Amino acid sequence: MKKLSGSEARACRAQGAKLQASAVIGKRGLTDENIKIIEQAFLKQSLVKVTIRKKAFEEPKKAIAEIAEKFDATIVQQLGSALLLYKDSESVEDAESSED
């Protein structure tokens, strides 16, 4: 996970405000389908927005940290039900080249 500087985080939050959620995590938690959707979103862009329903997790803060760790992404912002994740383009390119 990359640590973002203040200006990088502000820029990501500004971009994230315009994004539609790539995935919605509901009461079944992080499913295989959600994982595939989020992985595909990271292949296309370095910033991904995910919506998390209120009753998706018993311990939301812990679950959000685990989600970010699973995708080797940085949590840019968690505001209400929206989670904004950043994965630098080098990591995205590495993932693409390992699939070939």
Score class of each variant (00 low, 15 high):
Met1Trp: 11
Lys3Leu: 15
Lys3Arg: 14
Leu4Ser: 06
Ser5Arg: 12
Ser5Phe: 09
Ser5Gln: 10
Gly6Val: 08
Gly6Ile: 08
Gly6Thr: 10
Gly6His: 10
Gly6Met: 07
Gly6Arg: 08
Ser7Glu: 12
Arg10Pro: 02
Cys12Gly: 02
Gly16Leu: 03
Lys18Cys: 06
Gln20Thr: 05
Gln20His: 06
Ala21Thr: 02
Val24Pro: 02
Val24Asn: 03
Ile25Gly: 02
Lys27Leu: 02
Gly29Pro: 12
Thr31Lys: 07
Asp32Thr: 06
Ile35Pro: 00
Ile37His: 01
Ile38Asn: 00
Ile38Tyr: 01
Ala41Asp: 00
Phe42Arg: 00
Phe42Gly: 00
Leu43Phe: 11
Lys49Met: 15
Val50Lys: 10
Ile52Ala: 08
Ile52His: 10
Ile52Val: 15
Ile52Gln: 12
Arg53Ala: 14
Arg53Ile: 05
Lys55Ala: 13
Ala56Ile: 04
Glu59Gln: 15
Lys62Tyr: 12
Ile64Asp: 07
Ile64Tyr: 08
Ala73Gly: 04
Ala73Glu: 02
Ala73Pro: 06
Ile75Asn: 03
Val76Gln: 03
Val76Phe: 04
Gln77Pro: 08
Ser81Met: 13
Ser81Trp: 11
Ser81Cys: 10
Leu84Lys: 05
Leu84Glu: 03
Leu85Cys: 04
Lys87Glu: 00
Asp88Ile: 03
Ser89Glu: 14
Glu90Arg: 12
Glu90Pro: 01
Ser91Tyr: 05
Glu93Asn: 10
Glu93Arg: 13
Ala95Gly: 12
